[in-house]
Amino acid sequence: MAEILLCSQPMHADILENQCGISTEDIFGLNLNHTTPTLTPFKPYLLGQNPSTHDQCILGTLGSPSTALSLIELSQTIGADNLHAVAEIHSKLHEAKIHLDPVELSKGMVERTAGVIERHVENLQEAAVEYQKRLLELQQAKKADTRARALARQKAKIAFDKMQQHFRKEVKLVNGRKKVTPLNNFKRATNIATSSRNVAKLEVANQVEASKLAKLAKGAKVVGNVITVLDFGERVNKISTSYKEGGKWEREMFVESSSFATSAIIGEGVAEVGLLLLMATPVGWVGLIVGGVVIAGTAAAAAYGSNELIHENAGSTYDEIMKWIGG
């Protein structure tokens, strides 16, 4: 168990000692040395008496300033304890290739038939799809009279609440499964919680958790109370990881950018043709919603399929082109 301390402002160790009761002796930097009197913002520090190399590993995973910035924002918005749960859900949804993004969530349609998703995640997803539908209805109702508009707004609100409920349930479930006492030093934790909004403390049990957190921090952006997860960010991340590891980053960039562009073009193309077909059929409201979901699902399936294809084969195509250029 490693306790990580993050701050968003330069902070003098004395202030920390006075306000939170953390002595300077207990704060360690990245190389397990004692820190300078002032803590640098957006840099993770380790708390404790005798940190192990294992703790150092965890610290390293969360080391980049952008990760730290994002983690501070996230932990202030949703609370440090919930952060783990959200990271867990994010990684689970990510494994099932679903992103917490309303547009992307319709992809869940495709995955569900494959039966790869656990039941409760499925509920969350269904709720999100429902919310999305209501929003579309609301968009339509803009042209209608005030009563219809109010009704649509009400429905969207209900769907939103339901989605939130499922999300909260999911968070609770993940939190409950962990046998981690949320705060193993009660006094210190309450001090941190009450004294400052510039300091965040995280407890990380192992390397797996740390990498999940780092992944969430890279993909998530805090917008008010909403988290948006960007698929594109992760692709860029892959390229830069390859670059840092001295791999063939140009090759990686070729693979990622071509598969991203292709799947975007395919998905959009299928969606447009679907819309044209849908508009040509005389259906009522229910038909439109069902049709819309089918289009979104088909488009997502097409985009998903092409992403797989290009992702798997773009690398060898790149090699082929390079061979060709090289003679």
Binding site: I265, I266, E268, G269, V270, V273, A302, G305, S306, L309
Partner: peptide, 14 residues
């Protein structure tokens, strides 16, 4: 060209 690429690729995928 957009639709040709889109459906051409879809064809190859299938």
């Amino acid at each position: 060209l957009f639709f040709l690429t889109s459906f051409g690729t879809l064809f190859i995928v299938i």
